[in-house]
Design a protein around this nucleic acid. Structure first.
Lengths: 139, 139
DNA sequence: GTTAGTGCAAACTCTTTGCAGCACT
DNA sequence: AGTGCTGCAAAGAGTTTGCACTAAC
């Protein structure tokens, strides 16, 4: 129970442990490149291993992978705490939003469309207070 | 008024007209590759031109670009009709969902976070009736 | 010792870009 | 005729994969 790796028939390697620990402590989703950069300081790891590891962890349901508007994939621990993000379109600041009002909506949708709804993806975009006040010129 | 291209200082070329027409008649967002394939039957066009054209149209606000969970960018006409999609995770069937219950939510968020919210992205995932009934084995 | 995981480099996909030639106004 | 648009090919970014080597069990 204590070891999420062994529960999924995965060997507990240095790399996987490090990536899991990193994701546990990350307040927001990280990219593969970000994981690679963060781990490079403390150990030797290759970028392809990072990709392979997060993919494996995602398959096992330990990690969630989401593709951002920038087209880059972000990874986060699947702590089963459903939450969405508010993203500043200027500085990319990420603000977690607790609570999700969509479950009742999902039930309605399921009833009207006949789909078996398994999940949803919701993000809000805007300007964080700093960016909104700083300049009015957007890129 | 009748010509969205000229209004945006864009020359009305064969390629742009064809892409706009295609998007007008498309019930769901299409990929650049899809546009390329569709147009190749009736005229000569290069894939890079498709990319350049949709980017230009997107900059002018005539077209909306959205990145899907598959990492591929989908383009659709910006008909100012706000709508979301329900996507089958097995066959990728796309079902438009009219109406959006998030505007009041946006106002609440704006008030609590201080962000100036400019938009959102919402997608539902699930199994369409066919896929749900067909088999229980997933890919 | 056996099997699974890793590193490196190359390949792959989607998208962008430089430059010469062509089409629209 | 002039400027902007297009085609082609090459480059670019992010991600995946083949193969030999290493580490976990």
């Amino acid at each position: 129970m204590g070891d999420p790796l062994k529960e999924n028939d995965l060997k507990r390697t240095k790399c996987r442990t490090a990536i899991l620990t990193l994701l546990e402590n990350a307040p927001v989703p990280i990219t593969a490149e970000g994981i690679y950069q963060a781990l490079s300081g403390e150990m030797h790891v290759s970028l392809s291993t990072v990709y392979r590891t997060v993919s494996t962890l995602a398959e096992k349901g330990l990690v969630l992978k989401n593709i951002g508007v920038d087209g880059i994939t972000y990874y986060q621990l699947n702590n089963h705490h459903h939450c969405h993000y508010l993203i500043c379109t200027q500085c990319n600041a990420l603000l977690p939003i607790d609570g999700c009002p969509l479950h009742t909506l999902e039930e309605n949708l399921s009833a009207t469309t006949g789909y078996h709804i398994t999940g949803h993806h919701l993000e809000f975009f805007g300007l964080c207070p700093k960016c909104a006040s700083k300049h009015h010129d957007s890129r």
